[in-house]
Design a protein around this nucleic acid. Structure first.
Lengths: 374, 374
DNA sequence: ATGAAAGCGCTAACAG
DNA sequence: CTGTTAGCGCTTTCAT
């Protein structure tokens, strides 16, 4: 192996190459080969490509990262060499040297909830278009892991971090802010953003649904809500508006609210309606914190012979794939998840490339999709 | 700068704690500070920690990666210094040097389909427990991007790649095999694995459902299937078994099959049933390639006054959150996604740590969950 | 337009 | 148990 390299090197890379091999032809080469064998791979490096193309290693780098500044003939030779060697740049090395990892971390409570999916999907795609990859972290609703997760993320020196409704601990927020890494908080409009925000107002959604019910002459509303912070804020927006409008489920005391554990299920929607009806037999409207809960309400209503929407109006949240198709079709609050993902991506990429983000707080709003259930 | 470096190198670490500040008070520090300022952050490094703890940099590394081999007193001093500095190891650098990135890439067609979610979630969690992170790639059903995606992934030198039903092109498969990176193919049991496999037989599922219908005295079955390879294999397993059992939807020609575009929706389930009924009015059983399609069938049947299960038996695939709760509850094929994720994680981690994987092909099987719709 | 040199931050290998 | 040395593979900087 040493000999072969010497030949190639002498031609191409002049003295340096020769020196290199002389120095390395003994123990060093052996060690390298051993190391490669040990880890089972033998990736071509920028040096291999450079040698074959007869250029300096950094010229290879230029061809890849700044093709315009390389003469066409040289470029072609390098690209050819890349093809011949099957060279795939080691992004760890590049990221280390350039301090630009082209990695973006997304943190979600859990990926298994259908809500964030479209946003994550769009985020991944949009990042991909800019040559960035997504690393996924699950905070798993447990604060204990947040700190370890944060280390794992910051350790990768990502170009940005996209948060979806997590990072509760003040300590975590402090560390994020201190890290200097661009942060995008999503799915919410906090008054105290760490950095950038793209989301919508959960309170406003609750209010909008209450007003909607009110316009529809519903006067005894209830809420079935998953036990999470954002859902709670939609609920409180709803309850406040309902009080203002003098709607009264469960008498003057206010809206009947049933909280069920997250993640929400169809089953808890069914039992939730049962409980609400026990407390307020004249219930005529229900706002659910997820479409799955709403489907449960629809199901339970059907089982009890309660007519929707005649006896009971139902509104969900999320506009899931099944929501338009069920009978009756489900009125629900729609949020443009993909748009959130795309905006978050563009924010991070802009920052990462040194551009300024002119709108660091974006409200994407929401829409109430009226269907058969109201 | 040359001079400064010489000094630093000569001293290196013996006198370093004492001398460091003197040496660096000149241009070196300025340059570093400038570099840090340029990239907007100022992460502490192993050298900073070492200086404060009065040890060599690699001792810091040992404390983090191999605490047992460091004396307790030293360890405590180092941990203290880490706390003081807020040091978070740069995993790009560590990964580069050790050739162990602790990164695993997962490739899915799209994350937005609910099917793979639980597996990805479990995979992420299981990897996390071993100090690995997940990077997510979406092949987006388009082969064109596969190659670019592959470069992006291989470039990160991941400890493993987990594939879920993708990588069609022979070229991509060849490159993966050549990369020497541990590969786990999931959700399927291919006869020509690239490396490791954890999945189940789609043909066997089709057969099992056909046999199930047959035992239930259904004789005119139909299939509504999404337009993807795996679903097609479930369908062909079903059709073959149905033929063997002499069931005949649409007369002797065989099972009535309606293919709908992926991703499947409730709406295409509804229209699918309509079309199947037009072709085979005596249809008495339908196997759907997803629970969403099955929900559409249930919905359409309800709209037409077709009684399920009396007139029509319905079986789905996926056992989604709503499937147990709808009326009638949905009989469906259940696959243990989290288990697939966990096994894939353990395979990759084992390989990455040089251990042998004793069972490189795992069939996790499936179960037919019988509910009200049959 | 291209090359030479240096070094990102870490850890492997060896020495003691 | 701890320190010294070297270098992972790339890109930046400076020189030409």
């Amino acid at each position: 192996m040493g000999a072969v390299n010497v030949n190639v090197n002498i031609d191409r890379y002049r003295l340096q190459a020769r020196r290199f091999d002389i120095v390395n032809s003994s123990r060093h080469t052996v060690a390298m080969a051993a190391a490669r064998a040990r880890r089972g791979t033998r990736h071509a490096t920028v040096v291999d490509v450079a040698r074959i193309a007869g250029v300096a290693p950094n010229t290879v780098s230029r061809v890849l990262n700044n093709p315009a500044q390389v003469a066409e003939a040289t470029r072609d030779r390098v690209l050819d060499a890349i093809r011949k060697t099957g060279y795939v740049p080691n992004l760890l090395a590049g990221g280390l040297r350039s301090a630009r990892s082209r990695l973006v971390a997304a943190v979600v409570p859990t990926i298994a909830g259908p809500v964030f999916l479209e946003a994550i999907e769009a985020l991944t795609d949009a990042l991909d278009e800019h040559g960035y990859q997504l690393i996924l972290g699950q905070s798993g609703y447990k604060t204990s892991r947040e700190d370890a997760l944060l280390d794992a993320i910051i350790g990768r020196r990502p170009a940005g971090i996209v948060l979806t409704g997590v990072m509760h601990s003040a300590e975590a927020r402090r560390r994020l802010a201190a890290s200097g890494i661009p942060i995008v908080e999503t799915w919410d409009l906090t008054r105290t953003p760490i950095d950038m925000v793209v989301g919508f107002s959960h309170e406003a959604i609750g209010e909008a649904v209450a007003e909607f019910f009110h316009r529809r002459k519903r006067r005894r509303p209830g809420v079935i809500t998953g036990d999470d912070e954002r859902a709670a804020r939609r609920t409180s927006g709803f309850v406040r508006a309902a009080a203002r409008l003098e709607m009264k489920g469960r008498g003057p005391a206010g809206t009947a609210v049933k909280t069920v554990p997250a993640p929400t299920t169809l089953a808890s929607g069914r039992s939730g309606l049962a409980e609400l009806l026990a407390r307020e037999p004249k219930l005529d409207a229900v706002f659910c914190s997820s479409d799955l809960l709403a489907l449960g309400v629809l199901t339970e209503a059907h089982a009890r012979g309660i007519r929707v929407p005649h006896d009971l109006a139902v509104v969900g949240f999320g506009n899931l794939p099944f929501s338009a198709g069920v009978i009756p079709s489900l009125t629900t609050v729609h949020v443009d998840g993909p748009r959130i993902g795309r905006i978050a991506a563009s924010m991070v990429v802009a920052r990462s490339e040194g551009r300024k983000v002119d709108e660091p707080v974006v409200d994407v709003g929401f829409s109430l999709v009226e269907r058969g259930s109201t």
